[in-house]
Amino acid sequence: MDTYTSPSGPAVSGVVVARSSLLRMAVAAYLARFKGQSRIHTESDLRGYLTWCEDRALDPFTAARPHIELYIRWLQEVRGYRPSTVSRVASVVAGFYRTCVIDGALENSPAEYVRRPAVPAESPTLGLTHLQFEALLSAARNFTTMLDAGVDLRDVQIAARHADPRTTMRYDRARKNLDRHPNYILAAYIASGT
């Protein structure tokens, strides 16, 4: 068996290095399916699972369904996550393993039959009341109109907390295209009280 001396010191077997490379490639392949905030959140959830495996000296490629069930229980009982969060994280882990199967890194997904916590059909998150929504529209109108009123771009940038004036200018150009946007039409309809 070949050995590899890592820059940090001790020798590691060639098999371990190959598994590590395979894992890095599998993670990259899975995350490549996502963009923007979805990628950031998915990466965070997957990193949490991989760290949990590492803390238990568990190779993610040798994990079985009971390991993932234990991870879900750990999220619930130790971390105290809500069912919706646990279900989301379990979906990320299942998606990772599904991608590993698709790419030929694994024959079967150990997450295929994992039980996820029940998530209530109704969300406990409250939406805006009609008055709150009108206040939001009013505030947006007063902003999206600062430039129309002749307020200096720099002052609008500061009020909007934009780090770069190009961001403010981008919103200024985009506001002229809102008349046909479905959300804008809905907001105008609700604001008109009809």
Rank of each mutant, 00 (worst) to 15 (best):
R180N: 11
D45V: 05
R47H: 11
V27M: 05
G14N: 08
H67T: 08
D2I: 04
R56G: 01
A105R: 10
Q132T: 05
R154C: 00
R56N: 00
N183A: 15
P66V: 03
T194A: 13
L23R: 14
G193M: 05
G127F: 08
A174Y: 13
P165L: 06
N108H: 14
R73A: 09
A174Q: 14
V16S: 11
R116C: 04
Y171S: 05
A121H: 13
L178N: 06
L126P: 06
N183W: 15
T62H: 13
S84E: 07
D164T: 01
R19C: 01
H67F: 09
A105S: 09
P83Y: 00
A188R: 12
Y113L: 10
W74T: 03
V92R: 04
A57G: 04
Y4R: 06
L31P: 03
Y184V: 13
P60Y: 00
L178C: 10
V101W: 07
A111Q: 02
R65P: 00
G95I: 06
D152M: 11
P10W: 03
V89R: 15
S123V: 02
M1P: 13
G14K: 09
Q157F: 01
A26K: 07
I190Y: 08
C100H: 01
A26Q: 04
R33V: 09
A188W: 03
A163S: 15
R33E: 14
T145A: 15
S109A: 01
R141T: 12
Y81C: 14
V119A: 02
V27S: 03
R173D: 10
R24F: 07
T42N: 14
L186V: 12
V93N: 02
E134H: 12
I68H: 06
L186P: 04
D45K: 10
F61M: 10
R175V: 04
T145M: 15
H181V: 11
A111V: 01
I40G: 01
D152P: 08
E54W: 06
D55R: 14
V151S: 05
E77D: 07
A90Q: 03
Y171L: 11
D2A: 10
T99G: 01
M146Q: 15
V119R: 02
S21M: 11
R24Y: 08
T125G: 01
A111S: 08
A159V: 12
F133K: 03
Q132F: 05
Q37C: 05
L178V: 10
A18R: 05
L153Q: 02
P10K: 13
G150Q: 02
M1F: 11
T5C: 07
G127D: 04
T42A: 14
V156R: 08
R98H: 06
A191W: 07
A139W: 12
V15Y: 09
A63R: 04
E107F: 05
A121P: 01
S84I: 09
V16L: 13
M169A: 15
V12N: 00
I158D: 06
D45H: 12
P124K: 00
V12I: 14
D164P: 02
S21T: 08
T194C: 12
E122S: 07
I190V: 14
S87V: 00
A90M: 02
W74S: 06
D55A: 11
Y4T: 07
P124M: 00
I68P: 04
G193T: 07
M25Q: 15
F96I: 04
T144F: 15
N142H: 14
S6Y: 04
V86P: 06
I40F: 13
G104D: 07
